[in-house]
Amino acid sequence: MIRQALLFLLTLPYIQARIEPFTGCETNAFPPNQSDAVPHYTINLDLTPEERWTKLLMEKKGHMLALIDDVRNLTISLLGQKVFSFINNNLEKIASSLPQPYFGEIKGIAKATGLPVSEVTLYNIFYEVFTFCTSIIAQDTSGNIYHGRNLDFGLFMGWDPKKHSWRVAELLKPLIVHLGWIKGGKLVYESVNYAGYVGILTAVKKNQFTFSLDERFGLNGGYIGILEWVLFKDHKQKWVSFLTREVMENAKTYEEAKHMFSHTRLLAPVYFILGGAKKGEGSIITRWRDNFHINDLQEHMSGSESWFLVETNYDQWKSPPFFDDRRTPAVHCLKLRGQKNASPKLIYNVLSTKPVFNKLTTYTSLMDVNRGYIGAWLRRCEDPCWPW
């Protein structure tokens, strides 16, 4: 309740910008416009960590510099130069303590862009700071599993009242890329990333599992974990987005990935949404830093809702707050169409239904584990559209 009260107070100035409540399910958004498909690149894991991102960042350097410059100025305007300098100085300590290969990759990105290592580090730990999302797993009548997600980012980060948009969300969009991760000449997995962000938030490993990550708020959240990392040198805990990359690279099965996501100690609470390749393989793993709770696809509910899972940014056993209820419209639209229509088309349409789709949505992704398919498209929510 404290978490929701704090979020309510922060969003209070924007609530008057909300339009009328949910009025209906989107049915014609699919197929997405292919001109909005994000570009494809590869990351060669056989290169040294310092070299892996150089080619991509040569192309995306200008966009990354624009984003970091805006975030820097926004932080200084909100907190002041002295506070920003304090944060920046501590980021140097965080950077030097990060495990390999992540620290090496961050140094390589800093060199390619000309940015300080501290600012590239901040860009790479933003999950531990603030993100919003919606993830859906659906199973059709034949037992095929489909997975989709909206990645929403940038709340309170530069609302433009004239353009009705969040500046940081808009600056992130040119950085969104579809990555193929290569090792020994073979494709290991594919992901959707922000260029220069070395962790994993959305990914597929063919015939094994699909994955997305949603923010989970908590007073014992990322800030506490970061302080423990810096002040007490507690380096046994895992950075959330680095763990997800380790799972994508090392886990061989859905069950192995599920165990790693459930049992690893974390810096921050989180929701891991995991889809498998077999009937019934789907779960929402609600994580505290040292504990977990799992909602399985076929066990979390009964009756008409047993074929899908929906996660926004709130615990499954609690009602979402009235000022940020994306779950209810998503569940309503899935139930309305029914399992006979379970498909990537249905998921994309649900993820295009307002307010599930909103001004914070940077991309929508669809995944099919058995095809090894992942697609992602840039999103722009035209007015009337909810700020979040």
Score class of each variant (00 low, 15 high):
Phe86Glu: 12
Glu105Cys: 03
Leu98Pro: 01
Leu74His: 13
Leu115His: 08
Pro101Trp: 03
Thr131Phe: 14
Lys61Phe: 02
Phe153Thr: 15
Val129Gly: 03
Ala66Pro: 00
Ala95Trp: 12
Ile125Ala: 07
Leu172Ala: 04
Tyr127Ser: 08
Val168Lys: 14
Asn124Met: 09
Arg167Cys: 06
Pro116Cys: 10
Glu128Gln: 15
Gly62Glu: 11
Gly62Pro: 02
Asp152Thr: 04
Asp70Thr: 03
Ile68Thr: 10
Ser165Asn: 06
Pro101Phe: 04
Ser142Tyr: 10
Leu151Val: 09
Asn150Tyr: 03
Gln81Arg: 04
Val129Tyr: 14
Gly154Phe: 04
Met58Glu: 15
Leu98Thr: 01
Asn124Pro: 10
Ile106Asn: 05
Pro161Val: 07
Asp140Val: 08
Ile87Pro: 00
Leu122Ile: 11
Asn90Ala: 01
Val83Asp: 02
Ile76Gln: 01
Gly143Pro: 05
Gln139His: 10
Phe84Glu: 00
Glu105Met: 15
Arg72Gln: 07
Ser118Gly: 08
Asp140Leu: 14
Ile109Met: 08
Phe86Arg: 05
Phe130Leu: 14
Leu57Glu: 01
Cys133Asn: 13
Gly180Ala: 15
Tyr127His: 13
Pro116Met: 14
Val177Trp: 04
Asn88Phe: 07
Val83Ser: 08
Lys55Trp: 00
Ser97Phe: 12
Leu171Tyr: 07
Phe132Arg: 14
Gly108Val: 01
Asn150Lys: 06
Gln100Ser: 14
Lys55Gly: 02
Ser97Thr: 11
Thr134Asp: 12
Glu59Pro: 09
Leu151Glu: 08
Lys55Gln: 09
Asp69Gln: 07
Lys173Arg: 12
Ala112Phe: 08
Ser165Trp: 01
Gly80Lys: 00
Trp159Asp: 10
Val177Gln: 05
Val71Asn: 01
Leu91Ile: 02
Lys163Gly: 06
Ile106Pro: 04
Gly185Tyr: 07
Thr141Glu: 12
Gly104Gln: 07
Leu172Trp: 03
Lys173Cys: 02
Leu115Glu: 08
Asn73Pro: 00
Leu67Ala: 06
Asn90Lys: 13
Phe156Asp: 01
Asn73Lys: 15
Asn89Gln: 14
Thr134Trp: 04
Gly108Ile: 06
Leu91Val: 03
Leu67Ile: 04
Asp160Lys: 06
Gly143Ser: 12
Pro101Met: 04
Val71Thr: 09
Gly80Phe: 00
Gly154Ala: 08
Asp70Gln: 12
Trp166Leu: 06
Leu115Met: 15
Asp160Ile: 09
Met157Gly: 00
Pro99Met: 13
Phe126Gln: 14
Phe84Pro: 00
Phe126Leu: 10
Lys111Ile: 07
Gly154Asn: 14
Leu98Ser: 01
Val129Ala: 09
Phe153Val: 11
Leu78Lys: 05
Gly184His: 14
Leu67Met: 10
Val168Ser: 09
Gly143Val: 15
Ile76Leu: 03
Ile176Tyr: 03
Phe156Ser: 07
Leu179Ile: 07
Trp181Lys: 01
Asp140Asn: 15
Arg167Ala: 13
Asn124Arg: 05
Gly108Ser: 10
Leu175Ile: 04
Glu119Thr: 06
Phe153Ala: 09
Gly104Lys: 06
Lys61Ser: 12
Gly185Trp: 06
Arg72Pro: 00
Val177Lys: 00
Ala66Asp: 15
Thr131Trp: 03
Gly185Asp: 10
His164Glu: 11
Val71Lys: 04
Val117Asp: 12
